[in-house]
Design a protein around this nucleic acid. Structure first.
Lengths: 339, 339
DNA sequence: TTGTATGCGTTATCAC
DNA sequence: GTGATAACGCATACAA
């Protein structure tokens, strides 16, 4: 690999002059500048970011840690983060914790060792606290995405989970549904807790009874065994006319289990969910969902992070941004009003 | 940030000893080893990858450059690459060229400057050649994914585009379709060329006429304006009974344009595509597709890359792996046999 | 306008 | 077993 010294020697200047040409600093005569530039081209010089970062004590690198790269919500979010990072001259490193605390801890090590300038992280849940504290004690700026962690003050980009769930219940109620069940992610995740709250809000506001066993805890990420959902379906008494799923994965898997039991959606039972199924869901729009602005999560979060990085000296108070979401009415809900 | 010197001072040893403890090299007495380890924990030491890479002349970093992060084919591929990279102790950097030559060139700069150990790249097309040559002349090992580039010898992971397209035509033909049109990506991309070839193969083998204007060139990535597809639909004479889309994006957009014209799929016209619509397409399986093993593209490609990196001295001949694909028959094709 | 010396955090080499 | 020194590629402070 060619270094600034190779350039310097060939251009008959010092390495320092080359460095100045590269960074456009200091005063340089037009003649030497162009000579150096020509040699750089000739030798196909590419600066070494690592050496540069080592002396500058900054990497221009951000790290985005999401919990499920196969989930369109997070890939769209990633796209937003990437665009924002590029716009402000940062590069983006990328990790996928798989909703697993250990992988998350592992990535935190990588993050610290890589000396990235900042981190965007969707924590796996409340138990991410120690992982976040490691970032904090190394004073690496970070922004929390999609989920809060009790005990951790930080910049934050959230959706309106609670109100979103409430609106889904209301929508079902408007169409005549009274027996509404909910399958959710683990309650150690703030978004799951808020969506459950919103569900209960909606049930109460619309005078709907919450029967015993109507709330079931599963997982936000794809898992191998969904027999617990089958068992849950088998035991609900009375059987619901609609199910609210805590995210898109759960909506899909619940529908799969319903099909397995010979139940059609929406003819036999209605299903609504949280987060859309991806950029292609419009081909054959099926699932009625609360759709969050995934791209904005990433874009806004990255902007907040970069602001935080660039004003490290005068720390502003923590910011919390709540992004609104849309109710997309499609055809997974049956109208029960004229029965 | 705490360095090995901080550790060394506190543990009353030299920095070198600390380094040896960290890397498990050389001979160290159990006593000093445990002492150093304790101090490391106390001080919350995290090694600095950049400094390490600078002297070792390797980063343990791979770069994956895909062309469309919103496309489930590539995100699933990414997941495979990530898993393989982790398994072999590499970290994965990540970029999205958006099917744009300029962004790709930009990322090549980043890649070279970051001194990654290897690159996985899905080139935007034939004109990626100069970009790849830059990698080559810097002797950065790389593996081509999903697309070949004429004039560039390299390790390669491909799908069976040509045969896949042929099978789609055959499937349509089996169901009584004779007028089959094709909308494709730009012909400067090898996969588009091969799929066109496969389409032509299929038409010929099944004695189907290729009417004038039945082949239309669009784009593999989402673009703003699809009016050219509308115009194409309006001008085909005779109007086809089925359309073969060169990838998933085109399938979706074609269906959208058909809907816009009041045509139902599959009642009025059938559509088949290449690559599945993502992990959730099974909820309401609609589009009949040739589904490629996206995960394997990433996993296998990464393995090939790592092998190539680790045997830099005895360069093996280039490897080319062709992954088989599946025909997933769903309900976007109408059976015309009993008309 | 340009050059010299020094240090960023780590490891390899060689000495003790 | 352990330590001193140089080197990786670059940029800053200070000279010239």
């Amino acid at each position: 690999m060619v270094t600034i010294y190779d350039i310097a020697k060939k251009a008959n200047v010092s390495a320092m002059t080359v460095s100045r040409v590269i960074n456009n600093t200091g005063r340089i005569s037009e003649k030497t500048r162009s000579k150096v530039k020509r040699v750089m081209e000739e030798l196909n010089y590419v600066p070494n970011h690592m050496a540069r970062s080592l002396v500058l004590q900054q990497t221009n690198l951000l790290f985005l840690l999401i919990t499920d790269i196969t989930n369109p919500f997070y890939t769209t979010l990633s796209r937003g983060a990437e665009d924002a990072a590029r716009k402000y001259g940062y590069r983006l490193l990328f990790g996928n914790s798989d909703e697993t605390l250990e992988k998350e801890a592992d990535y935190i090590n990588t993050i610290l060792a890589t000396r990235v300038d900042g981190v965007l992280i969707a924590p796996t849940g409340d138990s991410s606290l120690p992982n976040l504290e490691r970032l904090q004690s190394s004073s690496v700026p970070f922004v929390l995405l999609d989920r809060e962690v009790p005990g951790m003050e930080a910049d934050l980009v959230l959706g309106d989970s609670r109100d979103g769930a409430r609106r889904l219940v209301e929508h079902l109620s408007d169409l005549g549904h009274r027996r509404i069940a909910m399958v959710n992610g683990v309650s150690t995740t703030s978004s799951a807790r808020l969506r459950l709250q919103g569900y209960l809000d909606g049930m109460k506001l619309n005078d709907l009874p919450v029967h015993e066993g109507y709330m079931h805890e599963s997982s936000f990420r794809p898992i191998d065994d969904y027999s617990h959902i089958e068992a849950w379906l088998d035991h609900m008494q009375p059987f619901p006319t609609a199910i609210l799923a805590g995210n898109n994965v759960l909506a899909v898997e619940t529908i799969r289990m319903l099909h397995k039991r010979g139940l059609r959606v929406p003819e036999d039972i209605s299903v609504v969910g949280f987060d859309d199924l991806g950029p292609f869901s419009e081909v054959d729009p099926f699932l009625t969902v609360i759709s969050q602005q995934a791209y904005q999560f990433g874009y806004t979060g990255t902007q907040m992070l970069i602001e935080r990085i660039q004003s490290r000296d005068q720390p502003d108070p923590w910011k919390k941004i709540v992004l609104p979401s849309d109710l997309l009415v499609r055809r997974s809900v049956r109208d029960l009003r004229h029965q």
